[in-house]
Amino acid sequence: MIATVGTETLIVQAPDIPTPSLKQLAKLAGASSIEALPTTDTQAFRLAPAGNRAAVAAFCAESLLDFAFVPPDQRLDRVRLAAIDMDSTLITIECVDEIADMLGIKREVAAITESAMRGEIDFRQSLKQRVRLLTGLDVSALQRVYDERLRLSPGAERMLAGFRSVGAKTLLVSGGFTFFTERLKARLGIDYTVSNILEIADGKLTGRIQENIVDATVKAEWIRRLGNELRGSDGLIVGIGDGANDLPMLANADISIAYRAKPIVRARTTYAIDQCGLDAILNVFIHNP
């Protein structure tokens, strides 16, 4: 097959990329140069110039490689805002599922969560249903989840530092809970957070959410509003998420990234990261010397 080569570069990333696979991919893409990129726990290469998108995508899917075709003007220093989902994106857990585990009902709640993230049931109703099941739980359980179970996704801190290095703002926008987003904001230096407030009375969860629910529509409104404020003349807005509830937010980003996401999300985003950590996102941008 003859590759149709354009002006884009191809970024390929994975925990390990065998040399024969890399050479085969370069030939398939019509690339004349291969450059290793600096990484931590994975391997990443830039192949240029590159084309033959469909064949490259098929090869990378079969070889379990993350890939991205990157246009020459997609510079990291153009990013003005990175909007990031929390549960199963910035962090490795679904907080509501782990809270439910404190009551011994994780399996029941997790099944509802999974269905909502696949887009099979309405998020607002699913969240109300899950929170209602937490009625009576002592608020100390939230701290236990944060201390004992909440872990950052691989590469999260390096990704945030990369965006911060070019002056980009970060927005943690979540259908989860302020108990966790506010702690992560303080810990990681995130600029903005939006999430749901669990109602508490006498030190226990009431099974209700205060004020308006942060759902897909609210997420989209926040990235759109902040994006309009921060974009400037040539800025880029980046959205990162994993579930169906993130799709409207991602649709309002210039560059949307599915991180270890559901198929419905991977099919509708600019890029997908499945094999690497969040810091791999930095490599889909051109870095100025």
Rank of each mutant, 00 (worst) to 15 (best):
K27H: 14
Q210M: 10
H287F: 07
E221I: 13
A220N: 08
M1H: 14
L103K: 15
E157Q: 14
R124A: 15
L25I: 10
I91E: 06
P72C: 02
T178L: 14
R124K: 13
W222V: 12
T9E: 12
L28M: 11
Q129S: 14
E114N: 11
R53E: 15
A201N: 09
R183I: 06
D274M: 03
A83T: 02
M249V: 07
V12E: 07
L22P: 11
G243Q: 02
A68F: 05
A251D: 08
V194D: 01
G162Y: 02
E108D: 15
I121K: 03
I264K: 07
T217A: 11
I255E: 04
R224K: 15
R124S: 14
A267I: 03
D202E: 09
L37S: 09
G232W: 02
F285P: 01
R144C: 05
G207W: 04
N228Q: 13
D274W: 01
I255S: 14
T270H: 13
K262N: 11
V109C: 05
A244P: 01
V284F: 11
R158E: 12
I257P: 00
D279G: 08
Q24G: 15
V12A: 08
G155P: 14
L64Y: 07
R132G: 06
P72Q: 03
T270I: 11
K262F: 00
G235K: 07
S140R: 07
R107Y: 10
C276W: 08
E182A: 15
T9G: 10
E199M: 09
R46M: 03
L142S: 02
Y146A: 13
I209T: 13
L133Y: 12
D215R: 03
S21T: 06
I84S: 00
L184T: 03
I99Y: 12
N228R: 12
S140V: 04
P71Q: 07
V131E: 09
I213L: 08
L198S: 02
L226K: 10
I112T: 12
P49Y: 05
L103A: 02
C60D: 05
A48E: 11
K23C: 11
I84P: 00
E199C: 04
M249E: 05
T9M: 12
K27E: 08
M117F: 05
L282K: 03
A100C: 13
V265P: 00
A272R: 04
R231Q: 05
T113W: 11
A201P: 05
A168C: 10
P49W: 08
M102D: 06
G155E: 12
A26I: 04
T135Q: 14
K219T: 03
K169C: 13
D73H: 13
A82D: 00
T9Q: 15
A111N: 10
A244T: 01
D246S: 00
N212W: 04
E148S: 04
D242I: 02
I213E: 04
M86Q: 01
N228G: 15
I93K: 02
T170F: 03
